[in-house]
Design a protein around this nucleic acid. Sequence first.
DNA 1: CCAGCTGATC
Length: 497
Amino acid sequence: MVVVQRYLELLSRCRGGADARPIARIQAALVTSGLLRRSAELHDALIRALASSGTPHAALPLYAHLIRAGLLPTPHTLPSLFKSLALSPAVPGARRLALAVHAQAVRLGLTGFLLVNNALIRVHAGLLGRLSDAHLLLRAAAAVDASTFNTLITAHARAGRVADARSLFDEMPERNAVSWSAMVNGYVQAGDGREALGVFSQMQAQGVRPDDTVLVGVLAACAQLGALEQGKWVHGYLRANNIRMTVFLGTALVDMYAKCGEMQLGMEVFEGMKDKNVLAWTTMIKGLAMHGRGSDSLMLFSQMESSGVKPDDIAFIGALCACTHTGLVDKGRQLFNSMVNKHASAREIRHLMREKGVEKTPGCSNLEINGVIHQFIVGDLSHPRIKDILTKWYEIDSRIRLEEGYVPDKKEVLLDIEEEEMEGALSRHSEKLAIAFALISTNDNIPIRIVKNLRVCQDCHHVTKLISKVYGREIVVRDRTRFHLFKDGTCSCKDYW
DNA sequence: CCAGCTGATC
């Protein structure tokens, strides 16, 4: 019996998940021999093994069997069972079962165990989505371990309550590597890359060694902000410390390079990746599309298919983006027809909802100078050098009017702004402030790189073309969907974006 | 003999 238990434990610790078939065979043998009915420990080991084998729902009837056989669950059974429940939320009644198990644990007096108590907090925060109940349990608990705090941090961040996640993070007595990456990734998910990098530097100041997961978050933050220098630092760190290039890390690096305008470097990382899953391919496909390299992007799409990786909905969207940016109408239609379903997936709907929710998000442009991110928000005059920036803007404005005959285009300014304020509002669009600042604070011969959260407006696009000509500077702008390379008065998007 | 759970990229 002990041998069987140990074998099951071994299986449950397999990298990348155990094979479900031998576990099912062992379970059948234990049932027929009558051994299972007598041992809570064997139930334990089976539940644990199943949870890690990709068939967590098979663990649920085992728990019912345990109770029916009149055996008592051990304190180790419940955390595994809750994990199984969390992994199979689609199983009908999963939430009801979790509540029933909670009641049972109270009845059996198991809540006195630290393991069980913490598992209950996690199940309320995670599977049940009852953050307030989780808080009540947290306040009543004698001791709360780091893992439980970590789950709470993640649950709050996922619910869009990153400030609450931060209070929990600040409150917890001891933080481990998971805590730091949960917080960094929480800020990334909230779209606050700057705060994510702030938490990361705090982590380093405290002498905590960054692991691969937190670095994935840091790279995502760099990608959001267009922070190329800091992203490159992470790449160097990975190499210097011989950190294994996982698919996660590789993909995050490719995405960072693509979004920071260094497609070539992204390509090199991508080509060096041993395992490429659908996400890795899609990141590269979208990256090329973003840079207006439609045919390269489509070529990669076919390469992915012939390498045996099946495209998912997002991969299709990436390829379609490539078509729209390159005017490949026929190819786009062909792709569209090859899709069996697009019905919007839950993911897309969530994405759409998020977009709707942020409809009124103010325009914001980021600019990295010597590793420091400068942020400009439309109409915001809080930058320490705002006087110099506005002075520079007036100079730019008069030069492009005089030398290029520029007349402001008021079409895309909100209608409720008074007529005489319109030109002022236009001149304060965030990328104009960013460009003016870049012109006064950087060297003449390096390109200006700006990352914007929204689409570039018609007027700003026009103005940027004129600035690139009058000032003889290359300006690279990443907007919501793609890159624009402004040079000698023209843009790489050929006014199609 | 030992045992549980927590973080990630398009």
